[in-house]
Amino acid sequence: LVRYRTISKIPQITLNFVDLKGDPFLASPTSDREIIAPKIKERTHNVTEKVTQVLSLGADVLPEYKLQAPRIHRWTILHYSPFKAVWDWLILLLVIYTAVFTPYSAAFLLKETEEGPPATECGYACQPLAVVDLIVDIMFIVDILINFRTTYVNANEEVVSHPGRIAVHYFKGWFLIDMVAAIPFDLLIFGSGSEELIGLLKTARLLRLVRVARKLDRYSEYGAAVLFLLMCTFALIAHWLACIWYAIGNMEQPHMDSRIGWLHNLGDQIGKPYNSSGLGGPSIKDKYVTALYFTFSSLTSVGFGNVSPNTNSEKIFSICVMLIGSLMYASIFGNVSAIIQRLYSGTARYHTQMLRVREFIRFHQIPNPLRQRLEEYFQHAWSYTNGIDMNAVLKGFPECLQADICLHLNRSLLQHCKPFRGATKGCLRALAMKFKTTHAPPGDTLVHAGDLLTALYFISRGSIEILRGDVVVAILGKNDIFGEPLNLYARPGKSNGDVRALTYCDLHKIHR
């Protein structure tokens, strides 16, 4: 019993810090008490220290592992850092350059016999395009090294910054494609005289377009951006097909006994025919423009016929181009109408809503002055909100995010209106959640004399007048207030005048 009563005193000691020596009952000389009392004092002292730490809000209350900052290894790049964003855009520009100039170089340097010394005699450094290609190869190699040090988000939505895990993730992902696209074939085969082989191998750079397509997928929600990307894709495919079309004609031209190829026909049409040795002929500019003209006309199913396939190889390629053109029509131009419709969806919704308003007016036989006010209010409210119901949009977000959005939407009023000066951010967040926005066209009466005042109004834009009878008592403008002081009276009061809008007004109100 003594032991039980001794232990039962522990909660009292913990909360009230009572010393055991003052209790005459606990001072009985028993061996059990002498053993338990020192333990009680020690526990009391420890609990006292913990309570003191909690009340003082000291940093040592938290466990040590929670006080440590997340460790980022040296030379690790955050995937959302500004440097990584700028670097990704730079790589994107280099990939676009590669997609345009690599097929052009591979096709127009394929057994090209233009006048001038061969590239091997001039030297590697004197070729501007080769120098640019070398810079692109170096940048792609540097990009691989950067990807080995860039964080990523795993399946659990955690940012991984450990170098080993980053390397394994990159090896399992895009490393092989990036490595093949970054191989400097110019340096590996330079001086061997195989410019045709170098041009063909350099087309491996186009593998990076797969990554670019995935990154550009984030802009699919913007109709104008999608339309622009589709047109660029169409032009890029036409450019690639033009390079292939020229390569076919250029390879067949020296081996044909009869002059029936499209390059021969082009030379005869523009007065620059090929001679018996295969030299001469149109310039590279004429060849490229004509090839691009043929691919565009074939892809769009126009086909004027002034550039036509004559050999079997050219006919087979033309059939493939027609098939590609039909697929592009289905996948690209078939979506253009939907994209344009999405661009004008706001206008369509406006006309639909206006039609419903006019049908309501016609069905209920609203008189002319009231009908005009109804239409003007709808037009003004639509121009202010673009038909978007803010309350319906915010309803799907958590309250903390709703408060931040409301604070942002009402920031101008909260910053410049005098009653809100000096208020804490928590108070402003709470008030912003209570605001209701209303609009009024010129001549609209917001409050009639004798109406119950259940709200306090803040003028965000425009001006109003307060009338008693036919006498203008006051004219209020931006950041002015009218209405009933909230919670100042037990019952809502009545208006002693009319409140009429002089201009288009936007008002925020808080109800009782």
Rank of each mutant, 00 (worst) to 15 (best):
residue 302 V to Y: 01
residue 84 K to M: 01
residue 326 S to G: 04
residue 335 N to M: 03
residue 402 Q to L: 03
residue 286 D to I: 01
residue 408 H to C: 03
residue 199 G to N: 09
residue 304 F to P: 04
residue 186 D to F: 12
residue 408 H to P: 01
residue 292 L to V: 01
residue 233 T to H: 01
residue 330 A to L: 04
residue 138 I to S: 03
residue 170 Y to A: 01
residue 194 S to F: 15
residue 352 T to V: 08
residue 240 W to I: 03
residue 239 H to F: 01
residue 265 N to T: 14
residue 102 T to W: 05
residue 110 L to I: 03
residue 361 I to S: 06
residue 258 S to K: 15
residue 69 A to L: 05
residue 442 P to L: 03
residue 205 R to Q: 01
residue 386 N to D: 04
residue 129 L to S: 11
residue 99 A to P: 01
residue 103 P to I: 01
residue 184 P to C: 01
residue 297 S to C: 04
residue 191 G to C: 04
residue 162 H to N: 04
residue 441 P to V: 11
residue 351 H to T: 05
residue 378 F to R: 04
residue 122 C to R: 01
residue 325 G to C: 01
residue 109 L to T: 07
residue 129 L to Q: 08
residue 324 I to C: 08
residue 229 L to I: 11
residue 205 R to N: 01
residue 449 A to G: 06
residue 406 C to V: 05
residue 179 M to R: 01
residue 435 F to L: 09
residue 142 V to M: 07
residue 350 Y to L: 03
residue 115 E to T: 14
residue 88 D to V: 01
residue 440 A to T: 09
residue 87 W to P: 01
residue 307 V to Q: 01
residue 445 T to C: 12
residue 405 I to A: 02
residue 256 M to S: 15
residue 76 T to I: 13
residue 71 R to G: 07
residue 173 G to D: 04
residue 235 A to C: 14
residue 65 Y to A: 11
residue 391 N to H: 12
residue 400 C to E: 09
residue 88 D to Q: 01
residue 346 G to T: 13
residue 75 W to I: 05
residue 428 L to Y: 04
residue 388 I to W: 12
residue 142 V to D: 01
residue 182 A to H: 01
residue 120 T to E: 13
residue 323 L to A: 05
residue 188 L to R: 14
residue 69 A to P: 05
residue 81 S to G: 12
residue 241 L to V: 01
residue 70 P to T: 08
residue 230 L to S: 05
residue 416 H to F: 12
residue 108 F to Q: 01
residue 417 C to L: 14
residue 95 V to W: 01
residue 162 H to W: 07
residue 367 P to R: 08
residue 109 L to S: 15
residue 103 P to D: 01
residue 144 I to H: 01
residue 336 V to H: 02
residue 336 V to E: 03
residue 447 V to Q: 01
residue 106 A to I: 11
residue 286 D to N: 01
residue 213 A to Q: 06
residue 434 K to I: 03
residue 170 Y to W: 01
residue 112 E to N: 04
residue 369 P to S: 07
residue 190 F to S: 13
residue 158 E to P: 04
residue 220 S to G: 05
residue 112 E to T: 09
residue 194 S to L: 14
residue 265 N to D: 12
residue 270 I to Q: 03
residue 227 L to D: 01
residue 195 E to D: 11
residue 193 G to R: 13
residue 274 Y to E: 01
residue 383 S to C: 07
residue 79 H to Q: 02
residue 392 A to R: 10
residue 270 I to N: 01
residue 296 F to Q: 01
residue 187 L to Q: 13
residue 156 N to D: 09
residue 269 Q to N: 03
residue 312 N to C: 01
